[in-house]
Amino acid sequence: MLSIFKKRKAIELKSPVKGRAIEIKDVPDEVFASGMLGNGIAIDPVEGIVYSPCDCEIVNMFPTKHAIGVKTNEGLEILIHIGIDTVEMKGEGFNSFVNIGDKVKAGDKLISFDLELVKSRAKSPITPMVITNMDFVESIEQYYGDCDASKTVLKAFLK
């Protein structure tokens, strides 16, 4: 018997940082909160390590190491942005463990950052993770609450 329902491909994204997952609309930055860069989730971090949310390739590393772009095998593009207005820190307190072109697995360490320095120098330590090519996505589901690199915080259902 043929099913009339299309089986949707879902990509699960783990939390890129340990902390508390919140709605993207609650990020204290209009560019993220409005969804201008894409839809997703944000984490209020409790430690200064960014982990890969999935098996992917590093496609962008900002020179200041405050943000990183990754791409899944399926073509989903994800931006992880550590804190708000952290570009103003000019890389101080950030250390990268990966380079553009590297293939990484979910849970691999990507970047470390001095959380206390971010809290004292940036607008906010809240770390958005957004899908930047939402035209590729039919819908998403988010999880809110306590999370770490083993917790799925976002599921993207592909078109």
Rank of each mutant, 00 (worst) to 15 (best):
M1P: 08
M1F: 12
S3W: 10
F5N: 12
K6F: 12
K6R: 15
K7T: 15
R8Y: 07
K9Y: 05
K9W: 04
L13V: 04
K14Y: 13
K14I: 08
S15A: 15
P16S: 02
R20A: 05
I22R: 02
K25H: 10
P28K: 07
P28G: 10
D29N: 12
E30P: 08
V31E: 02
S34N: 12
M36A: 15
N39L: 13
I41C: 01
I41E: 03
P45G: 05
V46S: 15
I49S: 13
V50N: 02
V50G: 02
Y51F: 15
S52Y: 01
S52I: 10
P53E: 05
P53W: 01
D55E: 15
D55P: 10
E57S: 13
I58Y: 00
I58T: 07
V59H: 06
N60V: 13
A67P: 07
G69W: 04
L79H: 05
G83I: 00
D85Q: 03
V87F: 01
V87S: 01
V87K: 01
E88W: 06
G91R: 05
G91E: 01
F94N: 08
V98W: 04
D102L: 12
K103V: 14
V104N: 01
K105E: 15
A106G: 14
A106D: 02
L110Y: 07
L110Q: 04
S112N: 14
F113S: 05
D114T: 10
E116P: 03
K119H: 11
A122T: 00
A122F: 06
K123S: 14
P128V: 07
V130Y: 00
V130Q: 03
T132P: 11
T132L: 11
N133G: 09
M134S: 11
D135G: 14
E138F: 11
E138M: 09
S139T: 15
S139C: 11
I140A: 09
E141V: 07
Y144L: 15
G145T: 12
T152W: 01
L154G: 04
L154P: 00
K155L: 09
A156T: 09
K159N: 13
K159E: 13
